[in-house]
Write a protein that binds this DNA or RNA. Structure first.
Length: 421
DNA sequence: TCTGGGGTCCTAGGACCC
DNA sequence: TCTGGGGTCCTAGGACCC
């Protein structure tokens, strides 16, 4: 059996943890640069604020309805997430952390287990230990566990936040109820196509022939159909090791010069490489892109990107930054107002299983240099030690007008409690 | 004036091999 | 009138997820 544990309105709930007065009040959390709405409390959803809404279009509504607006505080969310995941890991070693706010747990076949009770225990423990409300869906496949979680959320009061699908009867009831657009793996592209053939629910999809499903949704769709029928076709994955690592940002103001972009691209590469070394990998290629404001006038737009492939894989930031800058040089065109840039590391190899080169140009000293940099930056704060090319002062501040304190990761931000007599 | 960031998997087609 | 058959690897683009 698989359990899907999903935090309720995760970012909004994280903010509420330290401001309990916001219980029952509308909350939204904004993306970097306070651009879009990326999380909403139930109360904010009820006000009709859509996911991804541009913040500037909703300022008046926020004010009028007294919506609490937060700039995204990822250090806080990441820390709360770790705490939740640690608790979940105590229930089973078979755990897949699927995203910052949800995880799949796998339980061995055992008919005497009371899954309803386990679900309730998980809920209570996480709520008591972290303050985070979660819902739990339990079923024989991951896709059905997703569906069960959906039901647990939709009927939170009746189900007490836990729903279990453990019989053919329950499965049928669930898939007949589940709308096609709420099926895990059916997105906005496939939905209209399937609807055109008269499909409305998850059940309808399970009744279609394999050939039809494959034609419409490829082999992923076939797996989906199996899963909805109760036959596991999607395994628990170990996604602690990434296959690609990206760092991309929209700038607070547009940049026009090569030097500004070079500083940004270098810093993004530094950040990505830190993550790469943390998972003990080297990479062989880096993708670099720059773009102007995509909402701007057609004539003022320019996008370009390039992949630089290295002669041998590396985990040295110094080496990779040189390649990233060379790529940037090739795609940079003066005369445009650039609003976004990013890098993606690709083609990973494990550090201790690397293909070495006979005529290598790699400087062995970089290994200890990187180790020293990571260690110092880890102990004394990000970017305490930088490459010279990064040093452009504070040109890269993000707009974060309503950032909450980093309550759990920064000593000076820890809350003070005044006890009354 | 202002519109996020980070991932995975699949397929088709090109380039190449014998 | 007519030009084989069987493979692999890589990439771009699409679709999906949170």
């Amino acid at each position: 059996m698989f359990a899907l544990v999903d935090c309720n309105n995760f970012y909004a709930s994280c903010e509420r943890l330290f401001q309990p007065a916001l219980e029952g009040k509308p909350i939204v959390v904004l993306s970097n640069n306070d651009g879009c709405v990326i999380a909403r409390s139930n109360e904010a959803k009820a006000l009709g604020i859509p996911m991804g809404a541009p913040a500037f279009q909703y300022q008046e509504l926020f004010k009028e309805k007294q919506v609490s607006v937060f700039s995204a505080n990822f250090p806080l969310y990441g820390d709360i997430s770790n705490r939740v995941m640690q608790i979940l890991a105590s229930y089973t070693p078979d755990i897949e952390i699927y995203s910052i706010d949800e995880a799949f747990l796998k339980f061995p076949d055992n008919h005497s287990v009371n899954y309803q009770e386990i679900g309730q225990r998980i809920r209570k423990q996480i709520l008591q230990w972290t303050g985070m409300p979660v819902c739990v869906g339990i079923a024989p496949t991951k896709t059905l566990a997703k569906a069960a979680n959906h039901i647990a959320k939709k009927f939170k009061e009746q189900r007490a936040g836990v729903h279990v699908i453990d019989s053919e009867e329950m499965r049928l009831k669930a898939v007949r109820w589940l709308k096609l657009e709420d099926v895990w793996g059916i997105g906005r592209r496939s939905l209209p196509r399937l609807q055109h053939y008269g499909l409305k629910t998850a059940y309808d999809l399970t009744q279609k022939e394999d050939a039809f499903v494959k034609k419409q949704l490829s082999v992923t769709g076939l797996r989906l159909k199996m899963e909805l029928l109760g036959i596991p076709a999607v395994l628990l994955e170990d996604n602690s090791i990434r296959q690609s690592i990206s760092v991309t940002r929209t700038f607070e103001h547009p940049y026009t010069t090569f030097e500004e972009l070079r500083e940004r691209v270098s810093t993004f590469t530094v950040m990505a490489m830190e993550k790469l070394r943390a998972q003990h990998h080297s990479c062989r290629s880096i993708y670099v892109f720059i773009r102007t404001n995509r909402f701007g006038d057609e004539s003022t737009q320019y996008n370009n990107q390039m992949v630089a492939i290295l002669p041998e894989s590396t985990n040295s930031t110094i080496v990779l930054v040189q390649h990233a800058i060379a790529a940037l040089q090739k795609i940079f065109k003066p005369g445009y107002r650039y609003s976004k840039a990013g890098v993606t590391l690709m083609q990973f190899e494990e550090d201790n299983a690397r293909q070495l080169q006979l005529f290598t140009t790699a400087d062995p000293r970089h290994i200890s240099l990187m180790r020293a940099m990571d260690s110092i930056n880890g102990n004394f704060g990000q970017q305490k030690i930088r490459l010279a090319v990064q040093d452009c002062g504070a040109v890269w501040k993000m707009k974060q007008a309503t950032l909450s304190p980093r309550y759990t990761t920064q000593l000076e931000d820890i809350i003070t409690i005044h006890a009354q007599e």
